[in-house]
């Protein structure tokens, strides 16, 4: 089972799960928030959530002396993430998205004009509360699946060529709360793509890792007011 199919399966289960539990929890959450008003940078019971769904777009920026930094130029990207708060503000998330690039130097990569990376990864992180309206999240990927689809050949008889990789991603985001369950986000991600491309020894360092950063904007919808463990422990 690939990571992509695993993510799809977990998504369906997750959506069912938070519809069932998240909404049911809403009715009892008001009384909780009235009794727990203490809020610090590290913890805020009244701002506790169960699920967060993020939908947005991003701009990728390639960097470094590697096949991405020298050969690709970022165009745009899309993101769709779901994260579940396991205990307090520690969360685990699933992300699926894509980043789009133009090839700026075919001599270094091959004779194609465009590259699209399908990004699927699992991440963990923690959320902090710097002000009443802001949430600061830090996250890191723990498993991933990247698929480069290279297109734009001189003939239509070659539709695509594919490369694959694993992702090391370090991200942070800032959410601004517009209402209890609705926020906007600004995020930054540093991505290191560890490729499986077989190349001559001379090109090994150049193709082994690709580096790109992303700056994204989007919307956040949250559901529930208690983390997963609290639902069973409390």
């Amino acid at each position: 089972m690939t990571l992509r199919s695993l993510i799809k399966a977990v998504w369906l289960i997750g959506i069912y799960f938070f519809c069932l539990i998240g909404f049911a929890q809403e009715t009892s959450s008001n009384s909780e928030s009235e009794t727990n008003s203490k809020s610090t940078f590290f913890d805020s019971k009244e701002r506790q959530r169960f699920f967060a769904i993020m939908i947005g777009g991003h701009k990728p920026f390639t960097s470094g002396d590697n096949f991405m930094g020298e050969g690709l130029e970022g165009k745009s990207g899309i993101d769709f993430k779901v994260q579940m708060y396991i205990y307090k503000h520690f969360f685990i998330g699933l992300s699926t998205g894509a980043s789009y690039f133009n090839v700026k130097n075919q001599e270094l990569l091959g004779a194609y004009k465009k590259s699209r990376i399908a990004e699927n990864y699992v991440y963990i992180g923690y959320e902090f509360f710097p002000t009443d309206k802001l949430r600061l999240g830090l996250n890191i990927s723990i498993d991933s699946d990247l698929d480069y689809k290279n297109t734009g050949f001189s003939t239509s008889d070659i539709s695509e060529q594919n490369d694959s990789a694993k992702l090391n991603r370090y991200g942070l985001y800032l959410n601004y709360e517009l209402s209890k369950h609705f926020m906007v986000y600004l995020d930054y991600g540093y991505n290191e793509s560890k490729t499986e491309i077989v190349v001559p020894a001379e090109l090994d360092n150049f193709f082994k890792k690709g580096k790109y950063s992303t700056i994204g904007l989007g919307l956040v919808f949250t559901i529930g007011s208690r983390d997963l463990i609290s639902r069973f422990v409390d």
Partner: peptide, 13 residues
């Protein structure tokens, strides 16, 4: 179909 499938995950020099 005349579609050509290039080698995945491969580059030559």
């Amino acid at each position: 179909s005349c579609e050509v499938h290039l080698e995945d995950n491969t580059r030559i020099l």
